[in-house]
């Protein structure tokens, strides 16, 4: 399966999914496909929804 490029919504620079319970160093998510792609795309959609809901609230 061909790896797809990560696409983030306009205005989102980077996303760090999850927590880092490791108390010694910083963990970096490995871009395995398609799981991480799905996780990031879902978070990206949530971030878009966040703006949409804000705009909607302002218009109401």
């Amino acid at each position: 399966m061909k790896k797809k490029r990560i696409v983030l919504p306009k205005g989102v620079i980077k996303i760090k999914p999850g927590y880092n319970p490791n108390s010694s160093s910083i963990g970096t998510v490995i871009y395995s496909f398609p799981l991480v792609y799905i996780v990031l795309s879902t978070i990206a959609a949530l971030l878009t929804a966040l703006l949409t809901s804000k705009k909607k609230n302002r218009n109401e």
Partner: peptide, 23 residues
């Protein structure tokens, strides 16, 4: 800009100034 923290699902997002303004 800023960092947005969401707990459910957990993530941190680095966003631009414009995104912050839109928020």
């Amino acid at each position: 800009g800023g960092i947005v923290s969401v707990l459910n699902p957990p993530f941190l997002a680095w966003v631009t100034r414009d995104y912050m303004r839109q928020l």
